[in-house]
C-alpha cells in the first residue's frame, strides 16, 4: 500500500483549529448532556422505587422508551421529526430561530437517552440499601422525602459511582453521533480534515488519541470521587 504519512498536517493552523473546535463541541455536548442525564436519571430512578404506582408506571415507561430506541434514531427524531409534530409556531422556531440547533438537539437527545440508563442504576442502587435502614428512618419519624434525601440517596449514589463511571465515559463516546445531525464535534472535524488533506490515518489517529485522553481524565476524576465518597468499611476495600 502506498501511503504518504504526513503527521505535520495535524499541526497546521487551520486543521489544528478544527481539532480544537471539535474537541470543544464534544466536551460541551457530553457535559451538558451529562447534567441533564444526572438530574432526570436521578428523578426517574427514584420514581421507579416510590410507593405510588402511577409514578412508578410513568418512570418505567420513560426508561423502556428511551433505553430501547437506538440513540441514532432518537437523534433523528429530535432533529427531523419533533419540529414537524409540534404546533406550527414552535416547529418553525425550532427550525429557524433556535440558537445552535444541532448542539441543543444533540444535548437533549443524548441527555434524555443517558438519563434512562442512569435511572436504572439509581433504582438498582436504592434497591441495594437494606430495607431495615428505611424502617429505622421511618421509625424515627423521617418522612418519605427525608428518608430518600438523607438515607437512601446518599448511600445509593455512593454505591453506583463505579457503574456511573462507565456511563460517564460512554456519554463522551456517544456524543460522536451528533455529527449525523451536523454538529462539527471531534469526529466530524477529523472526517473533514481527512477529506481536505487525504490524510485519513492521521486525522482519525488524532481523534482517537483525544478521545482516549478525555476518557483517562474522566476515569481519574471518577476514581477521585469514588475515593472521596467511600463509606468507611461499608462497601469495597478500605480507602
Amino acid at each position: 500500500m502506498e501511503y504518504n504519512w504526513n503527521w505535520s498536517i495535524l499541526f497546521e493552523e487551520q486543521y489544528l483549529n478544527w481539532l480544537i473546535s471539535g474537541f470543544g463541541w464534544t466536551v460541551s455536548v457530553a457535559l451538558s448532556a451529562w447534567c441533564i442525564a444526572i438530574v432526570i436519571g436521578a428523578l426517574v430512578g427514584v420514581g421507579k422505587t416510590v410507593p405510588n404506582k402511577v409514578i412508578r408506571g410513568i418512570c418505567a415507561t420513560y426508561v423502556e422508551i428511551f433505553r430501547n430506541v437506538p440513540l441514532l434514531v432518537q437523534m433523528f427524531i429530535w432533529y427531523f421529526a419533533v419540529p414537524e409534530m409540534l404546533p406550527d409556531d414552535w416547529g418553525r422556531w425550532m427550525k429557524r430561530d433556535m440558537p445552535n440547533p444541532e448542539f441543543v438537539t444533540a444535548v437533549v437527545a443524548l441527555g434524555l437517552y443517558t438519563a434512562s440508563r442512569i435511572a436504572e442504576q439509581v433504582r438498582a442502587g436504592i434497591e441495594t440499601v437494606p430495607p431495615g435502614l428505611t424502617a429505622a428512618a421511618t421509625a424515627h419519624g423521617l418522612s418519605v422525602g427525608q428518608t430518600y434525601r438523607y438515607v437512601l440517596l446518599p448511600i445509593s449514589f455512593r454505591m453506583i459511582v463505579p457503574p456511573l463511571t462507565s456511563e460517564f465515559l460512554t456519554v463522551f463516546k456517544n456524543s460522536s453521533l451528533a455529527l449525523t445531525i451536523g454538529l462539527l464535534e471531534l469526529t466530524a472535524q477529523s472526517q473533514q480534515i481527512a477529506e481536505y488533506t487525504f490524510q485519513g490515518f492521521e486525522a482519525f489517529t488524532a481523534a482517537t488519541v483525544i478521545y482516549v485522553c478525555i476518557a483517562l481524565v474522566a476515569t481519574v476524576l471518577m476514581q477521585l470521587l469514588e475515593k472521596y465518597t467511600r463509606i468507611p468499611g461499608y462497601v469495597g476495600k478500605e480507602g
Binding site: P130, G132, L133, A135, A136, A137, A139, H140, G141, Y150, V151, P154, I155, R158, I231, Y234
Partner: peptide
C-alpha cells in the same frame, strides 16, 4: 418520633 425503636440488626446509617 415519640416512640423509640431498636432493631435486631441495629440499622445505623452506614454513611
Amino acid at each position: 418520633s415519640r416512640i423509640g425503636m431498636v432493631f435486631q440488626h441495629f440499622e445505623l446509617y452506614p454513611h
